[in-house]
Amino acid sequence: MENMVFIFASACLINNFTLTYFLGLCPFFGVTGRLDTAFRLGLANVFVLTITSLAAWGLNTYVLPSAPYLRLISFIVVIASTVQFVEMAIKKASPALFRALGIFLPLITTNCAILGLALFQTNRGYDLLEGLIYAWGAGLGLTIALVIMAGLREENELAKVPDLVKGTAMSFFVAGILSMAFMGFAGLFHGSGGSG
């Protein structure tokens, strides 16, 4: 149980995917203009990460031991197609949910955070439950980072910033400071922080 808590907190805060591993930066800098968009993008990420974790576990357990060189290709193909199937199922079953998340799904299906989760999960040898907890922690971490960033950028619109620094460069400085703040979480678990 303690292990599960550690996996969750590590993926979510200590080794935040965006701010520590630099995964999923494109949506982080590209889409996070408004708070509600950022939040829905985060939820879509949680959704795809869950599917990814299940798919990666299935592949690792049943298919890849006999053909390890197909790891990358099969991860990408299986994740992308599973997400597409689930997307179709949701469109049929719950149009409201589809409208909320749908437009983001193609955008994030082969995002680095998604493939990164599959690879990290494989490298660390997580089982099914650990993988799921890891995926939820990572998804929540991404959502937190996206929402904070969107909030800061909304404030930043009003601030006086030199012309040269405006835009992307400013976002990088903000992200750097945010990343520094998240380093504080490394002390959350004594003696084990950061290595997650």
Partner: peptide, 10 residues
């Protein structure tokens, strides 16, 4: 460390 990456690129 990670923050240095963001700051350097900025």
């Amino acid at each position: 460390l990670p923050p240095g990456g963001f700051l350097t690129l900025g």
